[in-house]
């Protein structure tokens, strides 16, 4: 069973709608016993990092999530929570990926980043930091999530904080004033900064791809 994590913060409805459309069976739950039995987990993006981590902690979900061996997808804030810490209220997060989530600089770009933007791949996986940031974009992240999705497709973004691009676990990047990490993966943990459930047919295709990722 797919479990969509309920952390009492609002709009889980649309992830559920997209799963229904894809005819996937799922349940919405914040119960550690249910989550630990899941064969696939989605952590949707809602609200602030601080409120989300407090809620996950209260519900006893932090260690359950950290210990998951099944395919996991973090959406928007759900991606940000994978990192060590978020600058949003200086919040310690799940620590599954190294690095810090930062806020866009409003003297450079409008904040929040709202709208449809493109995702490119990151060249030279495993190369040094400096090479990764200056390397030219490759058309598509090398991830199962992007199979069958045309290069340079647009996805819907809605966020004020962003993940680092210079990380060995960043597979996709997006340009908003500067590059930020928009697709991350480490073993069974995947994260996307955009909202696949609000990104039209292309987003639904990406969600379907996640539903087909095999357990490692």
């Amino acid at each position: 069973m797919i479990v969509v994590i309920d952390y009492k913060a609002g709009n889980l409805y649309n992830v559920g709608n997209a799963l229904k459309y894809l005819k996937a069976e799922f349940t919405v739950s914040g119960d550690p016993a249910v989550v630990s039995q899941a064969d696939r987990v989605i952590l949707p993006g809602v609200g602030s990092a601080r409120a989300a981590m407090e809620s996950l902690t209260e519900q006893g979900l932090v260690e359950v999530l950290q210990g998951l061996r099944v395919p996991f997808l973090g959406i928007c804030l759900g991606l940000q929570l994978l990192f060590e810490v978020s600058d949003e209220d200086n919040t310690p997060c799940l620590g599954l990926l190294p690095g810090t989530v930062r806020r866009f600089n409003s003297s450079q770009v409008k904040v929040p980043h709202i709208g449809w933007n493109q995702v490119s791949g990151v060249a030279g996986q495993g190369s040094k930091r400096s090479e990764r940031t200056i390397a030219p974009a490759v058309p598509q992240p090398s991830s199962k999530l992007f199979e069958g999705i045309p290069a340079e497709s647009f996805f819907y973004f809605l966020h004020s904080y962003f993940a680092p691009v210079e990380s060995p676990f960043t597979l996709g990047k997006t340009d908003y004033g500067d590059w930020f990490g928009s697709v991350v993966a480490r073993e069974n943990f995947y994260g996307v900064q955009f909202h696949p459930e609000r990104s039209g047919e292309i987003g639904l295709k990406m969600l379907q791809n996640f539903l087909e990722v095999q357990s490692s």
Binding site: Y13, N14, N17, A18, K20, Y21, Y156, L158, H195, E197, R198, S199, G200, E201, G203, L204
Partner: peptide
């Protein structure tokens, strides 16, 4: 609003 959210997948 619920009916709209059921059938469209853009914001």
């Amino acid at each position: 609003v619920k009916r709209v959210a059921d059938s469209i997948f853009i914001p």
